[in-house]
Design a protein around this nucleic acid. Sequence first.
DNA 1: TAGACAGGTCAAGATGATTGACCTATCGCA
DNA 2: TGCGATAGGTCAATCATCTTGACCTGTCTA
Lengths: 162, 162
Amino acid sequence: MKRSSGARVPGTEAPSAEVQLSDWGENEPLALLYFGFRAVVKKPDQELARHGLGRVHHRILFFIARSPGLGTIELLRTLDVSKQALHGPLRRLQRERLVQSVRDPDNARQRRLTLTPRGRALERRLSGYQRGLFAAAFRSVGPADAQGFCAVMRALALEARS
Amino acid sequence: MKRSSGARVPGTEAPSAEVQLSDWGENEPLALLYFGFRAVVKKPDQELARHGLGRVHHRILFFIARSPGLGTIELLRTLDVSKQALHGPLRRLQRERLVQSVRDPDNARQRRLTLTPRGRALERRLSGYQRGLFAAAFRSVGPADAQGFCAVMRALALEARS
DNA sequence: TAGACAGGTCAAGATGATTGACCTATCGCA
DNA sequence: TGCGATAGGTCAATCATCTTGACCTGTCTA
Protein backbone atom coordinates (compact mmCIF):
# COMPACT_ATOMS: atom_id res chain seq x y z
CA MET A 1 0.00 0.00 0.00
CA LYS A 2 2.92 2.31 0.52
CA ARG A 3 4.83 3.96 -2.25
CA SER A 4 8.50 3.25 -2.56
CA SER A 5 11.00 5.97 -2.00
CA GLY A 6 12.35 5.44 -5.46
CA ALA A 7 8.92 5.74 -6.99
CA ARG A 8 7.64 8.79 -5.23
CA VAL A 9 8.27 11.94 -7.13
CA PRO A 10 9.75 14.91 -5.28
CA GLY A 11 6.41 16.71 -5.26
CA THR A 12 4.42 15.26 -2.39
CA GLU A 13 2.67 11.99 -1.67
CA ALA A 14 0.47 10.11 -4.08
CA PRO A 15 -0.47 12.84 -6.54
CA SER A 16 -2.44 10.18 -8.41
CA ALA A 17 -1.60 12.32 -11.43
CA GLU A 18 -4.00 14.15 -13.65
CA VAL A 19 -5.71 11.15 -15.11
CA GLN A 20 -8.43 12.18 -17.47
CA LEU A 21 -11.82 10.66 -16.86
CA SER A 22 -13.48 11.16 -20.20
CA ASP A 23 -13.07 10.35 -23.88
CA TRP A 24 -12.23 6.71 -23.38
CA GLY A 25 -15.01 5.79 -25.74
CA GLU A 26 -16.49 2.39 -25.13
CA ASN A 27 -13.68 1.72 -22.68
CA GLU A 28 -14.78 4.54 -20.42
CA PRO A 29 -16.89 2.40 -18.12
CA LEU A 30 -13.91 0.10 -17.58
CA ALA A 31 -11.61 2.97 -16.69
CA LEU A 32 -14.23 4.57 -14.48
CA LEU A 33 -14.83 1.33 -12.62
CA TYR A 34 -11.12 0.99 -12.02
CA PHE A 35 -10.54 4.54 -10.84
CA GLY A 36 -13.74 4.63 -8.86
CA PHE A 37 -13.01 1.37 -7.10
CA ARG A 38 -9.51 2.49 -6.30
CA ALA A 39 -10.82 5.74 -4.87
CA VAL A 40 -13.26 3.90 -2.64
CA VAL A 41 -10.76 1.48 -1.16
CA LYS A 42 -7.98 4.01 -0.77
CA LYS A 43 -8.73 5.39 2.69
CA PRO A 44 -9.70 2.06 4.24
CA ASP A 45 -6.55 0.50 2.81
CA GLN A 46 -4.43 3.18 4.43
CA GLU A 47 -6.13 2.71 7.76
CA LEU A 48 -5.84 -1.07 7.51
CA ALA A 49 -2.15 -0.80 6.69
CA ARG A 50 -1.61 1.05 9.95
CA HIS A 51 -2.95 -2.00 11.75
CA GLY A 52 -0.95 -4.33 9.54
CA LEU A 53 -4.13 -5.62 7.95
CA GLY A 54 -5.27 -5.93 4.36
CA ARG A 55 -8.38 -5.53 2.29
CA VAL A 56 -9.50 -9.09 3.03
CA HIS A 57 -9.80 -8.25 6.68
CA HIS A 58 -12.11 -5.36 5.89
CA ARG A 59 -14.27 -7.55 3.69
CA ILE A 60 -14.56 -10.13 6.43
CA LEU A 61 -15.53 -7.47 8.96
CA PHE A 62 -17.96 -5.95 6.47
CA PHE A 63 -19.89 -9.11 5.75
CA ILE A 64 -19.99 -10.25 9.35
CA ALA A 65 -21.30 -6.81 10.26
CA ARG A 66 -24.01 -7.08 7.62
CA SER A 67 -25.13 -10.59 8.60
CA PRO A 68 -24.09 -11.20 12.20
CA GLY A 69 -24.01 -14.86 13.07
CA LEU A 70 -23.16 -16.18 9.66
CA GLY A 71 -21.08 -19.34 9.44
CA THR A 72 -17.58 -19.82 8.15
CA ILE A 73 -18.69 -21.66 5.04
CA GLU A 74 -21.25 -19.01 4.15
CA LEU A 75 -18.60 -16.37 4.61
CA LEU A 76 -16.06 -18.00 2.37
CA ARG A 77 -18.68 -18.57 -0.29
CA THR A 78 -19.72 -14.95 -0.11
CA LEU A 79 -16.13 -13.83 -0.47
CA ASP A 80 -15.45 -16.54 -3.05
CA VAL A 81 -12.17 -17.57 -1.46
CA SER A 82 -10.84 -20.93 -0.37
CA LYS A 83 -11.11 -22.17 3.17
CA GLN A 84 -7.36 -21.94 3.53
CA ALA A 85 -7.25 -18.40 2.23
CA LEU A 86 -9.90 -17.34 4.72
CA HIS A 87 -8.32 -19.22 7.58
CA GLY A 88 -5.32 -16.94 8.11
CA PRO A 89 -7.06 -13.55 8.06
CA LEU A 90 -10.03 -14.81 10.05
CA ARG A 91 -7.84 -16.38 12.74
CA ARG A 92 -5.92 -13.17 12.98
CA LEU A 93 -9.10 -11.14 13.46
CA GLN A 94 -10.13 -13.50 16.22
CA ARG A 95 -6.76 -13.30 17.93
CA GLU A 96 -7.04 -9.54 17.91
CA ARG A 97 -10.50 -9.71 19.47
CA LEU A 98 -12.24 -8.14 16.51
CA VAL A 99 -14.26 -11.20 15.56
CA GLN A 100 -15.90 -13.76 17.79
CA SER A 101 -16.85 -17.31 16.89
CA VAL A 102 -19.43 -19.06 19.03
CA ARG A 103 -21.12 -22.43 18.64
CA ASP A 104 -24.71 -22.47 17.57
CA PRO A 105 -26.74 -24.01 20.44
CA ASP A 106 -29.22 -25.56 18.00
CA ASN A 107 -26.63 -26.94 15.59
CA ALA A 108 -23.38 -27.58 17.37
CA ARG A 109 -21.35 -27.98 14.19
CA GLN A 110 -22.25 -24.45 13.16
CA ARG A 111 -20.04 -21.57 14.15
CA ARG A 112 -21.70 -18.19 14.46
CA LEU A 113 -19.36 -15.33 13.60
CA THR A 114 -19.98 -11.96 15.17
CA LEU A 115 -18.04 -8.77 15.69
CA THR A 116 -16.82 -7.74 19.08
CA PRO A 117 -17.39 -4.11 20.10
CA ARG A 118 -13.86 -3.35 18.93
CA GLY A 119 -14.49 -5.12 15.65
CA ARG A 120 -17.73 -3.23 15.21
CA ALA A 121 -15.94 0.05 15.81
CA LEU A 122 -13.21 -0.72 13.29
CA GLU A 123 -15.70 -1.88 10.67
CA ARG A 124 -17.74 1.24 11.27
CA ARG A 125 -14.75 3.46 10.69
CA LEU A 126 -13.50 1.62 7.61
CA SER A 127 -16.84 1.38 5.88
CA GLY A 128 -17.63 4.87 7.11
CA TYR A 129 -15.02 6.31 4.79
CA GLN A 130 -16.68 4.55 1.92
CA ARG A 131 -20.21 5.47 2.89
CA GLY A 132 -19.10 9.06 3.17
CA LEU A 133 -17.55 8.98 -0.26
CA PHE A 134 -20.69 7.51 -1.75
CA ALA A 135 -22.93 9.94 0.07
CA ALA A 136 -20.96 12.87 -1.29
CA ALA A 137 -20.92 11.44 -4.80
CA PHE A 138 -24.65 10.78 -4.69
CA ARG A 139 -25.28 14.29 -3.44
CA SER A 140 -23.25 15.79 -6.24
CA VAL A 141 -24.95 13.86 -9.04
CA GLY A 142 -28.49 13.60 -7.76
CA PRO A 143 -30.77 10.71 -6.80
CA ALA A 144 -31.55 9.64 -10.35
CA ASP A 145 -27.91 9.00 -11.17
CA ALA A 146 -27.49 7.30 -7.81
CA GLN A 147 -30.28 4.92 -8.73
CA GLY A 148 -28.65 4.37 -12.09
CA PHE A 149 -25.40 3.42 -10.47
CA CYS A 150 -27.07 0.83 -8.27
CA ALA A 151 -29.06 -0.56 -11.18
CA VAL A 152 -25.96 -1.00 -13.32
CA MET A 153 -23.89 -2.59 -10.59
CA ARG A 154 -26.70 -4.97 -9.76
CA ALA A 155 -27.03 -5.90 -13.42
CA LEU A 156 -23.29 -6.55 -13.68
CA ALA A 157 -23.27 -8.74 -10.61
CA LEU A 158 -26.34 -10.69 -11.71
CA GLU A 159 -25.21 -11.15 -15.27
CA ALA A 160 -21.95 -12.77 -14.31
CA ARG A 161 -23.97 -15.45 -12.56
CA SER A 162 -25.45 -16.66 -15.82
CA MET B 1 -7.72 -17.50 -8.88
CA LYS B 2 -8.47 -21.19 -8.63
CA ARG B 3 -10.54 -22.69 -5.90
CA SER B 4 -8.94 -25.24 -3.65
CA SER B 5 -10.12 -28.80 -3.65
CA GLY B 6 -10.83 -28.57 0.02
CA ALA B 7 -12.87 -25.43 -0.40
CA ARG B 8 -14.99 -26.36 -3.35
CA VAL B 9 -18.29 -27.80 -2.41
CA PRO B 10 -19.39 -31.02 -4.10
CA GLY B 11 -21.95 -29.19 -6.22
CA THR B 12 -20.03 -27.75 -9.14
CA GLU B 13 -17.49 -25.01 -9.62
CA ALA B 14 -17.75 -21.53 -8.20
CA PRO B 15 -21.47 -21.32 -7.45
CA SER B 16 -20.76 -17.83 -6.10
CA ALA B 17 -23.70 -18.61 -3.84
CA GLU B 18 -27.00 -16.87 -3.71
CA VAL B 19 -25.75 -13.57 -2.42
CA GLN B 20 -28.56 -11.13 -2.09
CA LEU B 21 -28.08 -7.79 -3.75
CA SER B 22 -30.63 -5.66 -1.93
CA ASP B 23 -31.60 -4.52 1.54
CA TRP B 24 -28.11 -3.59 2.61
CA GLY B 25 -29.35 -0.14 3.51
CA GLU B 26 -26.74 2.54 3.30
CA ASN B 27 -24.14 -0.16 2.82
CA GLU B 28 -25.73 -1.33 -0.39
CA PRO B 29 -23.52 0.76 -2.68
CA LEU B 30 -20.45 -0.73 -1.01
CA ALA B 31 -21.66 -4.27 -1.49
CA LEU B 32 -22.74 -3.56 -5.05
CA LEU B 33 -19.38 -2.06 -5.91
CA TYR B 34 -17.65 -5.11 -4.51
CA PHE B 35 -19.81 -7.68 -6.27
CA GLY B 36 -19.95 -5.69 -9.49
CA PHE B 37 -16.21 -5.22 -9.62
CA ARG B 38 -15.64 -8.88 -8.95
CA ALA B 39 -18.04 -9.82 -11.71
CA VAL B 40 -16.24 -7.57 -14.17
CA VAL B 41 -12.75 -8.89 -13.48
CA LYS B 42 -13.77 -12.53 -13.24
CA LYS B 43 -13.50 -13.61 -16.87
CA PRO B 44 -10.32 -11.65 -17.61
CA ASP B 45 -8.75 -13.07 -14.47
CA GLN B 46 -9.51 -16.59 -15.60
CA GLU B 47 -8.07 -15.95 -19.03
CA LEU B 48 -4.99 -14.27 -17.55
CA ALA B 49 -4.46 -17.20 -15.20
CA ARG B 50 -4.25 -19.51 -18.19
CA HIS B 51 -1.30 -17.45 -19.40
CA GLY B 52 0.17 -17.31 -15.91
CA LEU B 53 -0.53 -13.59 -15.74
CA GLY B 54 -2.35 -11.45 -13.22
CA ARG B 55 -4.65 -8.47 -13.10
CA VAL B 56 -1.73 -6.04 -13.18
CA HIS B 57 -0.75 -7.28 -16.60
CA HIS B 58 -4.20 -6.55 -17.91
CA ARG B 59 -4.14 -3.06 -16.46
CA ILE B 60 -0.79 -2.38 -18.07
CA LEU B 61 -2.06 -3.61 -21.42
CA PHE B 62 -5.25 -1.62 -21.01
CA PHE B 63 -3.61 1.72 -20.36
CA ILE B 64 -0.96 1.29 -23.02
CA ALA B 65 -3.75 0.44 -25.45
CA ARG B 66 -5.62 3.59 -24.48
CA SER B 67 -2.63 5.90 -24.73
CA PRO B 68 -0.08 4.28 -27.02
CA GLY B 69 3.38 5.73 -26.58
CA LEU B 70 3.07 6.68 -22.96
CA GLY B 71 6.20 6.53 -20.80
CA THR B 72 7.04 4.27 -17.91
CA ILE B 73 6.69 6.99 -15.33
CA GLU B 74 3.31 8.10 -16.64
CA LEU B 75 2.18 4.49 -16.57
CA LEU B 76 3.20 3.86 -13.01
CA ARG B 77 1.58 7.08 -11.90
CA THR B 78 -1.61 6.13 -13.67
CA LEU B 79 -1.60 2.74 -12.01
CA ASP B 80 -0.43 4.26 -8.73
CA VAL B 81 2.15 1.58 -8.14
CA SER B 82 5.83 1.76 -7.31
CA LYS B 83 8.49 1.50 -9.96
CA GLN B 84 9.56 -1.80 -8.50
CA ALA B 85 6.06 -3.20 -8.53
CA LEU B 86 5.64 -2.25 -12.18
CA HIS B 87 9.06 -3.49 -13.19
CA GLY B 88 8.41 -7.21 -12.96
CA PRO B 89 5.09 -7.40 -14.79
CA LEU B 90 6.17 -4.93 -17.45
CA ARG B 91 9.43 -6.73 -18.15
CA ARG B 92 7.52 -9.96 -18.46
CA LEU B 93 5.11 -8.46 -20.97
CA GLN B 94 8.05 -7.28 -23.01
CA ARG B 95 9.76 -10.65 -22.90
CA GLU B 96 6.58 -12.23 -24.17
CA ARG B 97 6.40 -9.76 -27.03
CA LEU B 98 3.15 -8.22 -25.91
CA VAL B 99 4.58 -4.81 -25.14
CA GLN B 100 7.24 -2.87 -26.96
CA SER B 101 9.42 -0.13 -25.57
CA VAL B 102 11.12 2.20 -28.02
CA ARG B 103 13.17 5.32 -27.45
CA ASP B 104 11.61 8.62 -28.25
CA PRO B 105 13.65 10.20 -31.09
CA ASP B 106 12.99 13.70 -29.75
CA ASN B 107 13.75 12.91 -26.12
CA ALA B 108 16.12 10.00 -25.83
CA ARG B 109 15.53 9.44 -22.14
CA GLN B 110 11.87 8.82 -22.81
CA ARG B 111 10.61 5.34 -23.49
CA ARG B 112 7.49 5.01 -25.59
CA LEU B 113 5.44 1.97 -24.65
CA THR B 114 3.24 0.40 -27.29
CA LEU B 115 1.47 -2.89 -27.77
CA THR B 116 2.63 -5.41 -30.32
CA PRO B 117 -0.04 -6.98 -32.52
CA ARG B 118 -0.13 -9.92 -30.12
CA GLY B 119 -0.44 -7.57 -27.17
CA ARG B 120 -3.21 -5.70 -28.91
CA ALA B 121 -5.05 -8.93 -29.55
CA LEU B 122 -4.79 -10.06 -25.94
CA GLU B 123 -5.87 -6.69 -24.60
CA ARG B 124 -8.78 -6.70 -27.01
CA ARG B 125 -9.94 -10.07 -25.80
CA LEU B 126 -9.53 -9.30 -22.09
CA SER B 127 -11.21 -5.92 -22.18
CA GLY B 128 -13.73 -7.33 -24.61
CA TYR B 129 -15.21 -9.51 -21.89
CA GLN B 130 -15.65 -6.44 -19.77
CA ARG B 131 -17.05 -4.26 -22.53
CA GLY B 132 -19.51 -7.03 -23.31
CA LEU B 133 -20.61 -7.24 -19.71
CA PHE B 134 -21.11 -3.50 -19.53
CA ALA B 135 -22.93 -3.39 -22.84
CA ALA B 136 -25.35 -6.05 -21.64
CA ALA B 137 -25.84 -4.33 -18.30
CA PHE B 138 -26.43 -0.98 -19.97
CA ARG B 139 -28.92 -2.53 -22.36
CA SER B 140 -30.84 -4.10 -19.51
CA VAL B 141 -31.13 -0.94 -17.44
CA GLY B 142 -31.41 1.71 -20.12
CA PRO B 143 -29.31 4.72 -21.14
CA ALA B 144 -30.37 6.94 -18.24
CA ASP B 145 -29.08 4.50 -15.64
CA ALA B 146 -25.96 3.98 -17.71
CA GLN B 147 -25.33 7.72 -17.58
CA GLY B 148 -25.97 7.65 -13.86
CA PHE B 149 -23.40 4.96 -13.37
CA CYS B 150 -20.75 6.95 -15.21
CA ALA B 151 -21.61 10.12 -13.33
CA VAL B 152 -21.30 8.44 -9.96
CA MET B 153 -18.03 6.70 -10.75
CA ARG B 154 -16.58 9.92 -12.07
CA ALA B 155 -17.66 11.72 -8.92
CA LEU B 156 -16.08 9.05 -6.74
CA ALA B 157 -12.81 9.18 -8.61
CA LEU B 158 -12.70 12.98 -8.60
CA GLU B 159 -13.67 13.34 -4.97
CA ALA B 160 -10.84 11.15 -3.73
CA ARG B 161 -8.46 13.60 -5.36
CA SER B 162 -9.47 16.39 -3.03
C1' DT C 1 -24.60 -46.53 11.60
C1' DA C 2 -22.63 -44.50 7.31
C1' DG C 3 -22.04 -40.56 4.89
C1' DA C 4 -22.45 -35.85 4.37
C1' DC C 5 -21.59 -31.49 6.55
C1' DA C 6 -19.23 -27.61 9.26
C1' DG C 7 -15.04 -26.41 10.77
C1' DG C 8 -10.13 -26.32 11.55
C1' DT C 9 -5.19 -27.02 10.55
C1' DC C 10 -0.55 -28.14 8.54
C1' DA C 11 3.10 -27.96 5.09
C1' DA C 12 5.35 -26.79 0.80
C1' DG C 13 6.00 -23.96 -3.00
C1' DA C 14 5.11 -19.98 -5.69
C1' DT C 15 3.99 -15.23 -6.19
C1' DG C 16 4.09 -10.64 -5.34
C1' DA C 17 4.61 -6.39 -2.74
C1' DT C 18 7.66 -3.44 0.02
C1' DT C 19 11.61 -1.01 1.42
C1' DG C 20 15.83 0.70 0.19
C1' DA C 21 19.72 1.18 -2.18
C1' DC C 22 22.21 1.96 -6.69
C1' DC C 23 23.11 2.58 -11.52
C1' DT C 24 23.03 4.78 -16.30
C1' DA C 25 21.65 8.20 -19.65
C1' DT C 26 19.83 12.44 -21.03
C1' DC C 27 18.08 17.02 -20.99
C1' DG C 28 17.61 21.92 -19.59
C1' DC C 29 19.45 25.71 -17.92
C1' DA C 30 22.48 28.97 -15.60
C1' DT D 1 30.35 23.75 -19.69
C1' DG D 2 28.70 21.52 -15.85
C1' DC D 3 25.13 20.55 -12.37
C1' DG D 4 20.69 19.08 -11.04
C1' DA D 5 16.54 17.12 -12.32
C1' DT D 6 14.29 13.68 -15.15
C1' DA D 7 13.38 8.94 -17.13
C1' DG D 8 14.44 4.52 -16.73
C1' DG D 9 16.25 0.19 -14.97
C1' DT D 10 17.80 -3.27 -11.47
C1' DC D 11 19.12 -5.93 -7.22
C1' DA D 12 18.25 -7.90 -2.75
C1' DA D 13 15.97 -8.96 1.62
C1' DT D 14 11.77 -9.41 3.84
C1' DC D 15 7.16 -10.32 4.48
C1' DA D 16 2.57 -11.61 3.48
C1' DT D 17 -0.47 -14.29 1.13
C1' DC D 18 -2.43 -17.77 -1.92
C1' DT D 19 -2.29 -22.35 -3.68
C1' DT D 20 -2.51 -27.29 -3.63
C1' DG D 21 -3.28 -31.07 -1.11
C1' DA D 22 -3.70 -33.69 2.60
C1' DC D 23 -5.70 -34.69 7.19
C1' DC D 24 -8.30 -34.22 11.45
C1' DT D 25 -12.44 -33.62 14.61
C1' DG D 26 -17.15 -33.43 15.74
C1' DT D 27 -22.10 -33.44 14.53
C1' DC D 28 -26.26 -34.33 12.04
C1' DT D 29 -29.47 -37.02 9.43
C1' DA D 30 -31.45 -40.42 6.55
